[in-house]
């Protein structure tokens, strides 16, 4: 473990060293911000989720286990949940979809050229894709995904089921 590795820095943060948190912030804030921005169109919410993320890291850095995966992935699990919390109480965020600028038609048109998983994913409707992204890629619970996407939990469940069925169909 080199002294400036993420794992070493997180260990230092767990000991209360502010400088280590600063290095982590400077290293990870730019890509976390971009990734959050793809899930929420409101820059203020993204900013506040990002701040909450590093505040949480300051408090919980001791919980990180290097054996359980890269620090970046761990940071993301915190960041996406902070975004969900930041969205709490907000009116149904159309913003969650706003980052997806491509129309479903464009996607489908481009997807027909290939027959792989990527194409299959791209051929899903934006709603189904968002549901898959939130639950599979971001690892959110149905409840959290519902808050992020601004739809009822039942809708998330149906969309995930429909997306999986469609993917299965497209891949066979």
């Amino acid at each position: 473990m080199t002294p400036d590795s993420d794992a070493a820095l997180l260990a230092a943060v767990a000991e209360g060293r502010l400088e280590a948190l600063r290095v982590l912030h400077h290293r990870h804030a730019p890509w976390l911000r971009a990734r959050l921005a793809r899930r929420c169109g409101d820059p203020d919410l993204v900013q506040s989720a990002l701040q909450d993320t590093f505040v949480a890291v300051w408090q919980d850095a001791g919980r990180y286990r290097p054996s359980e995966g890269a620090a970046g992935a761990w940071l993301w699990t915190i960041a996406i949940r902070k975004l969900v919390s930041a969205l709490r109480g907000r009116p149904a965020p159309v913003a969650a979809e706003a980052a997806v600028t491509e129309s479903a038609e464009d996607l489908v048109l481009r997807a027909v050229e290939h027959g792989d998983l990527g194409t299959a994913l791209n051929r899903l409707s934006p709603e189904l894709r968002a549901a898959i992204r939130a639950t599979v890629l971001d690892g959110l619970t149905v409840k959290e995904a519902a808050r992020l996407l601004g739809v009822p939990e039942g809708t998330v469940k149906t969309r995930v089921m429909r997306a999986k069925a469609q993917l299965r169909e497209l891949l066979t």
Binding site: R27, P30, A73, T101, G118, L121, N122, R133
Partner: peptide
């Protein structure tokens, strides 16, 4: 925001664990 979903997902998964690609994000 113009990247198709599948490619975006693979970018995201890779960046989460690649220090070089993290550093390549504009600051």
């Amino acid at each position: 925001g113009g990247l198709p979903e599948a490619a975006a997902m693979s970018v995201e998964v890779h960046v989460a664990s690649c220090q070089g690609c993290q550093a390549a994000f504009p600051v």
